[in-house]
């Protein structure tokens, strides 16, 4: 019996030892390397840990941007690691061993849209901005720097309102037409200016622009913002079945996608 107890005790100690050694491992992060341009919960952890030890002073939002990059390089330099601004296995292991991460605190505050920090050495509860101060919830979407999240939202509304029944290619093309107009001297130079130009889009006139866009419309806009233009530089499009303007028929036509004809 004593022998059995001893064996169980040794087994238990061995198990606890394994658990303790794993707690300093990188398992809290995902297995992938994190570099500039990545996003997600593992980037949130990276930012929170870097902030805990004072390297990262920006907003914890899960987007690996320039601030995170410089903070990570500084951390790597300080701890004598190769300085490349990439959080690989070794960097994450070192970071995990020298910092702490209160996942619940961070995630709860992000979900609630509250302004907060995650510095070590002071109570976390005192690092949440008081009262009902909230920040605009981030969609955590990464778009080229010349566009904003508001642009993305408005464009997704317009694309969904104008072309939700169209093939994906057609939805990207509608988004591209709006972006082409912004660059064109004959049109306003903002997303809002182009979309709300009187008479420019049916979805604005009939109120369908205010329908909640789906993920497909949002992805179509992201592709257009990233450079795809299936319309091949069009600045107009129309549905030949429903178009009432004679003038639109005089525009040089480029191609037809779904029900829309795209033209110059």
């Amino acid at each position: 019996m004593n022998k059995t107890m001893r064996t169980m005790l040794i087994g238990l100690l061995f198990f606890v030892g394994i658990q303790l050694s794993l707690s300093t491992d990188t398992h809290a992060f995902t297995d992938r390397g994190l570099a500039k341009g990545t996003k997600g919960d593992d980037v949130i952890e990276l930012q929170a840990r870097l902030q805990y030890i004072g390297f990262f002073k920006g907003k914890i939002d899960g987007n690996f941007g320039s601030q995170t990059y410089w903070a990570l390089r500084e951390f790597q330099e300080k701890y004598g690691m190769p300085v490349d601004g990439i959080a690989g296995t070794k960097t994450k292991k070192k970071l995990t061993s020298v910092s702490s991460y209160d996942k619940k605190f961070v995630m709860d505050n992000i979900k609630a849209g509250k302004e907060f920090t995650h510095y070590g050495g002071k109570p976390l509860t005192s690092q949440v901005k008081g009262g009902s101060t909230t920040t605009k919830p981030s969609t955590n979407t990464q778009v080229p720097s010349k566009y904003s999240e508001d642009d993305l939202k408005l464009l997704a509304n317009a694309v969904y309102g104008e072309s939700r029944g169209e093939p994906y290619e057609g939805q990207v093309a509608v988004a591209a037409v709006i972006l082409n107009r912004i660059e064109h001297p004959d049109f306003p130079n903002t997303v809002g200016g182009v979309i709300f130009q009187p008479g420019a889009f049916t979805a604005v006139s009939d109120g369908q622009i205010w329908l909640e866009p789906n993920e497909r419309a949002k992805e179509a806009v992201i592709d257009a913002m990233n450079g795809w233009d299936p319309s091949e530089n069009a600045i107009y499009y129309f549905n030949p079945i429903t178009a009432t303007s004679k003038w639109i028929w005089s525009r040089p036509q480029i191609k037809k996608i779904g029900l829309h004809i795209f033209c110059n």
Binding site: P230, E232, R251, P252, Q253, I254, K255, C263, N264
Partner: peptide
């Protein structure tokens, strides 16, 4: 596979495909 319309500034082929789960185009 269709051709661009006469008003296109540069002529191109527009190929549409639907293979297994993938649907798309190439110009």
């Amino acid at each position: 596979t269709t051709e661009s319309k006469p008003g296109a500034a540069y002529p191109f082929y527009h190929i549409r495909f639907a293979d297994n789960d993938s649907v798309g185009y190439i110009d």
